[in-house]
Amino acid sequence: MNAPIMTINNLKMYFPVQKSKGKPVYVKAVDGVDLTIYKGEIMGLVGESGSGKSTLAYTVMGMYKPTGGQIIFQGRDISMSSDKRPLSLKKDLQIVFQDPGSSLNPSHNIRQILELPLRVHKIVKREEMERKITQILQMVELSPNYMYKSPASMGGGERQMVSIARALATDPTFIILDEPTSALDVSIQAKIINMLLKLQQEKQLTYLFITHDLSLMRNIATRVAIMYLGKICEMADTVEFFRNPLHPYTRMLLSSIPVVSEEEEALKPKKVISTGEIPSPVNVPPGCSFHLRCPEKTELCFREDPVMLEVSPGHLVRCHAYQKTAGVNVA
């Protein structure tokens, strides 16, 4: 396997919400995440809304200063907020947001939008700006006459192409994709995904792909991690992950996916019926945070939070059910 490009150690991101009896109360959006991302892979980070997957991305981008833990990117510690990071580092780390309608400035045209990163990072001289922008637009298969269009006059798919072009403008090595296609129709999603895959091949990029769509991850990710209430509960190589899902939450997610063919139906875990909702991250239940919804909970789950365990090489799961069997194996 390739060398790690980013290592996240016990990352914590708490937000204060209100004070109760003089003590501040926190939303534990990200609560102790360990994640290693290798060069050239597509890491799929999957979770429901409120699981903290976007907060994780924003913390990596430096939009927040982490409450605790460490982020190491290309051998350098970047656990500080964005304004303290060196410019050269920001150039290597880019993000594409979920909603292209609100992440592109509506009063700028496409040229102005793409010009900004080029100017900030002093990538080309003023005279060459136009040629460079044409080149960037070509990378995402948009014709140069898009340069003077405004975001409002474009379709959702094309807008997202511009967002991707903006992220590519600084020639980064690592791109975070925060649900880049969830606001789009499937036929457009397919186009964007194919383009992202092509760019990843051509430019040797590493992606952290955040989504709630497991079927999409099945097709493009090299590894998948599932997040629930600020913690990762299962992580494995994609093939192993879908062949042998272990965590009860993963099985619940898989069984909830609406599919379009019989073959897919056969792959879904049977007899797992989804119940309950994700609890508020302000009052995380004691013990395992999933025990309220878990069909296989035991008395131990109410008391103790399980730790991450490697059940087979590269397949990690955080559940008491596997802790016990592993303990027996060791004995």
Partner: peptide
């Protein structure tokens, strides 16, 4: 076209879209 654009749980990549 719509059916082929849907990502499948069985894998096999993503189609070209419409």
């Amino acid at each position: 076209g719509l059916l082929s654009s849907v990502p499948k749980l069985t894998g096999g990549g993503v189609a070209e879209g419409i």
